[in-house]
Design a protein around this nucleic acid. Structure first.
Lengths: 332, 332
DNA sequence: TTGTATGCGTTATCAT
DNA sequence: ATGATAACGCATACAA
């Protein structure tokens, strides 16, 4: 079942069938109708591999994320699939496990020319890898580890988002705000940015930054959040609020607090970042910053589509607007 | 950058390069080394489209699920990607939104011959669609809407899993067990099976099945679970336990109960089904049935791989083992 | 053990 | 507005 078969059935040449399928404008209405009827009758689908071989286009873009078990990335993936679908593109999801090697390999001639472009959300790469980004495949970067790179970049408004939530905690009278999930060694990346915004907001209010209130946490999972709070309690550190660098950490933190008989928010307020679906339904519901994933997905796909259609202007850097969601976990 | 270039660089013919890349055994070690060196030096990747055009294989399989925002499917996707990776296969995720039309279209010549096989988890299809499954693309069905179809089938042990959790609730002395997420009209599918196992377990214990304890819920989301319990409370129905047909419903249900000042499990025990990551970290932690998604993914990929390598034996029907996780939400 | 010739299904180019 | 022809990069069959 090839284009030739369709052409034969419609009484035209293969090229005409191709033209119809690709929306070539100069076709007589009568011819188009005939061809479409034949396509329908034979239930014909074009062979994408053959087209790709000739034209270089597959209609597939890849989304490289650490893992789908993290709801933030799963929800981002859903949003991306939807946004891509509106442009007739299919999304191929690649999970890298936040592993540097696997992230780099996702960059190398993605999937043997099988994808037209790449939406790329690296956790293990940094500014030192900026050269690796000069791929031939169009790419849009999601995240904040590599600034002013050679490619388009869609970012979360980490600074203002964090400031908003920390101000909220301070306005509620909290003064000993623990922060969990920090990465002490790192100078770049989401952790460093959010932590920096945390300290500068405390400074604004004249609240001292206390080292023992910052708890490292490598993987931003529920279990790390639970462990972090456990550690604070065991060390006897006093705190009246927890700012978790993402929602999963916050949910894990609340789990430990409640398990230890503490009240949220009365004894300790908890806030997170991401606004994953889960956060609206936890008990108590979690105060968090919505990073704007719907808009991020949409913007990233739009940028990529523009590149795919040949735009080679200078790299764009776009910051998605954040939104603070105040819920029970911080309300006095 | 084609195979010819590599061949030229290595001083051999393209065919030899092809042989090396495909693991053809009868190659002199010296030749193989030369070729591999050239591949490495030129950073060559094979063009998958070209291979597909000739051989029919792409090394890509598709996983069709309703949506990734549901953590069960996201976690299943992660497990599938991992299992497929061990066979050198890439996974392309297709979300159908549980929409019948989109599910059917995922079936039709998937992605223009771009995928070798399909792992298919339909929610909107039923036995009446069994003919649609007779595709030319190898396929493995995940779920329980279509039994004894023409294709391999990996199933959750819904009956025994449900029985185990209901017995547990009964053993704890619960006698008015609400069940939420039922689908009254449906004769097939997960909802009907789990609800059937619920009623038969009650019967075993001589506990009457009360109609008003069964609350319908179309989409199995947190919000539906919250609404279902809301409805029970508003109707003044008495109940000492909630069996939610999946974890998301259960988490939503707990949210409403706790929000209304009820204690879980003291006043009402809550149990779910799926054992998504979230359930171990809710407050209280959720008792649930692990449907065995890791094993389901592994088994499904194995079955598909066997089909891809030409096995055309009769369709297999495999039931993954369940595991009951007892947590705080049901412990007296 | 390696090389040569051919064709997979589509699109680009050019012609009509 | 439509058609003829060649070529994309690889694998297959067959030859050497």
């Amino acid at each position: 079942m090839t284009m030739r078969d369709v052409a034969r059935a419609a009484g035209v040449s293969p090229k005409t069938v191709s033209n119809v399928m690709n929306g070539y404008p100069y076709i007589r209405e009568e011819t188009r109708t005939k061809v479409l009827a034949a396509i329908d009758a034979l239930d014909y689908r074009m062979n994408i591999s053959a087209r790709n071989l000739k034209s270089g286009r597959t209609g597939v873009i890849a989304l490289a994320v650490p893992e789908l078990s993290n709801p933030y990335f799963a929800e981002l993936a859903d949003a991306t699939i939807e946004a891509a679908g509106e442009h007739g593109l299919t999304v191929m999801i690649e999970t890298t496990g936040a592993d540097r090697e696997r992230e780099l390999s996702a960059l190398a001639r993605p999937r043997g020319h099988l994808v037209d472009g790449l939406l790329y959300s690296p956790l293990g790469l940094g500014p030192e890898d900026v050269d690796e980004l000069k791929t031939s495949t169009p790419m849009v970067l999601l995240g904040e580890r590599i600034f002013h790179g050679p490619v388009d970049h869609v970012m979360i408004d980490n600074v203002d988002g964090t400031k908003a939530v920390i101000r909220h905690l301070l306005d509620q009278g909290r003064r000993r705000i623990a922060v969990i999930g920090v990465r002490p060694g790192e100078q770049v990346g989401t952790a460093a940015i959010r932590y920096g915004a945390y300290t500068s907001t405390l400074a604004e209010y004249g609240v001292p930054v206390v080292a023992e209130l910052a708890v490292p946490g490598g993987a931003w999972r529920r279990s790390s959040g639970a462990d972090a709070v456990q550690e604070l309690l065991e060390r006897g550190v006093e705190f009246d609020a927890v700012f978790a660098l993402n929602d999963l950490l916050a949910l894990g933190a609340m789990r430990t607090l409640i398990g230890r008989g503490m009240r949220v928010p009365e004894d300790v307020a908890v806030a997170g970042f991401d606004n994953i679906d889960e956060s609206a339904f936890s008990s108590p519901a979690l105060t968090t910053v919505d990073a704007g994933r719907i808009q991020i997905a949409r913007t990233a796909v739009d940028l990529l589509v523009r590149r795919l259609s040949g735009d080679d202007g200078p790299p764009a850097e776009i910051v998605a607007p954040y939104e603070l969601h105040l819920r029970e976990s911080t309300r006095n």
